[in-house]
Design a protein around this nucleic acid. Structure first.
Lengths: 251, 251
DNA sequence: CTCAGCCTTTCACCCAGTGAAAGCTCCGGT
DNA sequence: ACCGGAGCTTTCACTGGGTGAAAGGCTGAG
């Protein structure tokens, strides 16, 4: 048969990678075809090439999974492992002082991506996953990243419906706008039970000369927390990472 | 001009990703073209598509870098972050007991890839990088992974020249073969100054029913070390991770 | 000013990629 | 054993997405 007016080959390859998610890390050939909307034979050939390179791996069960080679390449992302390497020692210090959850995130488009997490054994359990995404308007890190994002990004987030996670989540654009102004003024953000009813987070920005590139936060049980006491700790950690970032950039 | 008999589009896309390495995490368009051997215009178009998707990012300096989107997808690799999530708590325990470097690695073809590392502040500095590769015949984790690799893999490694890192590196195939047998017999590996003259590592396997999928190790200063005393600790950690792996597989 | 280096766009050509369909393999049911 | 179904692999004639040389921009150095 003749080739229908189609998408570019590259977009098909990337669509295959897109099909994988934390909820579905292993897919059969037919599932891949269904998710991408591509013919089975096309998926078969593209997937075979990706397996040969190592971007995908094929298990004994015949399912495709993301391959280690892709993890290797992905680990070269400056905002991924690069940032993590600099921030991890600081995060460990923060953990030793508080024994609470410590998180590191960056903004990607209109969401945030968690880069690293130290999960305190005896701290409140967090549902986030390293490599996972989340909305910007609820978490502490999200509020910090949004407050220092370009005006255009802020407007886009404020224009869209703000998902409600708990009864305390800010869903009113006007209130969110005032909250962001306050975050910029005081230099840190507090998200009190705005994601789950048992947790509170305090977040501070990580800066380079061009602006805020990441945020670091403590997530604690809401009834055990004194945000005002924690804020200086988190801010100090943010400043230490900022300094490390700037010197690594220049040097 | 007419299209020359060329490589597949997918292979060109993957060649672009291959061009990036820890030593060269940021490349200009011309550098990419030089490294891949592809014409400038081809690289330009493929790179533009990758940027649009987020696999690459383009800095203010015009250079291309690995994008956060690729890091996100890569983080779904079961042998990458998946393994890491299970092993990290155990690695932290091992660190708390010893305050030495703790490493986690898997085998990829004829090399090993470091999945995670806890770098002890006051421990001997290690030169490895998370996401980095290394030969199988020198490090503790490498010896464990090689000792339990398929016979075919072992033969390929033994057939190739064994690179020498220090005067104690095993470069004789016969000696390496006997060393691997010993590793299998005792259930752990010791690499004494076989990578650098100041460090010694003790490594133990992480098993699933199908075989050994990863290795965990302690790296300590060689003059402060008692391998025989450390081995049970590392082996115990390996067993704990093995158990976690197996239960997560089934459940 | 010119030159050199690098990035971007154009354009006519054509081969890598396409997708329906046939073939294959492995199950589980009868 | 036989059949039917589900999923994977391969074939084949056709074609549009990809190609790369070359021209056009854009900087910054000399």
């Amino acid at each position: 048969m003749r080739a229908e007016p189609g998408r570019s080959v590259t977009s098909k390859v990337l669509a295959l990678l897109d099909a994988f998610s934390p909820a579905t890390p292993a897919l059969t050939l037919s599932e891949l075809a269904r998710r991408t909307g591509l013919p089975l034979s096309t998926v078969y050939r593209r997937a075979a090439e990706l397996v040969a390179w190592g971007a995908l791996e094929r298990g004994d069960d015949g399912r495709y999974r993301i391959g280690l080679r892709l993890w290797e390449v992905g680990s070269l992302a400056p905002r991924g492992l690069g940032l993590r390497e600099l921030a991890l020692p600081v995060m460990e210090d923060l953990y030793e002082v508080t024994h609470e959850n410590v998180q590191l995130a960056v903004r990607q488009d209109l969401e945030l991506v968690f880069i690293e997490r130290i999960a305190g054994r005896h701290a409140v359990p967090v549902l986030t996953r390293v490599g996972g995404r989340f909305a910007l308007h609820a978490t502490g890190v999200g509020l910090v990243l949004l407050a220092h994002a370009p005006a255009e990004v802020q407007e886009q987030v404020l224009a869209a419906p703000l998902e409600r996670y708990t009864e305390l989540t800010i869903t009113d654009p006007g209130r969110l706008r005032r909250c962001l102004a306050e975050v910029r003024r005081v230099g840190y953000a507090v998200s009190d039970r705005q994601v789950t009813m048992d947790a509170l987070s305090v977040a501070a920005p990580i800066r380079v000369p061009e602006g805020v590139v990441a945020a670091i936060s403590l997530v604690v049980a809401h009834d055990r927390a004194d945000p005002v006491a924690l804020a200086p700790l988190v801010q100090a950690a943010g400043r230490v990472v900022s300094r490390a970032l700037n010197s690594s950039h220049q040097g």
